[in-house]
Amino acid sequence: MQCYLKDGHESIEVVFNAEEVNQYKAFFNILISEAVPPLYCAKLWPKFSLFQQLKNSEIVLKETQVTQIQDIKVNVHYLAQLHVIEQKKIRQFMKYVLQLEIYKNENKCITIRQIFMEKI
């Protein structure tokens, strides 16, 4: 998996493994198909170095927004980009807004925006 930074966001190349996706679908009782469930993409967060600062923190997921334009297929190469949209202190909390975008041939397939809170 190649990883690189460009203009304040990080990009990695990803391929979703069919066996792992089918195990996820079986666990959540999702019908078997070639499409990757949108929330399975959350598996990608720890692969980004931008997310590493939060990996060992006690963060709470507060909100998730998913905009899916195209289905994501297994065993296909995609470009995933993580953007830190906002990092802001609110009283005794730190708010992080992160956005994951997945592209195939420069066409956006999905956008996942999540808000995390950390007590400081």
Rank of each mutant, 00 (worst) to 15 (best):
R91W: 12
M1N: 14
L98F: 00
Q52W: 08
E106N: 12
Y78C: 03
A42N: 13
I120C: 11
I102S: 00
L31R: 12
Q87S: 08
M117E: 10
K88I: 11
Q68H: 06
D71G: 08
A18Q: 10
L98G: 00
V15C: 05
T64L: 15
K25W: 04
Q53C: 01
E106P: 02
Q92C: 03
Q2K: 04
T67F: 15
L61T: 13
K47V: 08
I120V: 15
E58Y: 06
E101R: 15
I30E: 13
V60W: 11
F48W: 06
Q68V: 10
K43L: 07
Q70D: 07
V15E: 05
Q2Y: 04
F27E: 13
F116H: 04
Y40N: 10
V21I: 13
V15A: 06
A18R: 11
F51I: 07
N105V: 08
Q81Y: 14
I110R: 06
L100P: 04
V60Y: 07
H83W: 13
Q68K: 12
V76E: 10
K43P: 02
I115Q: 12
F93T: 00
V21R: 02
L82V: 07
K88Q: 07
I59S: 06
N107S: 03
F27H: 12
K47C: 11
A26G: 15
R91T: 06
I112L: 15
V74L: 02
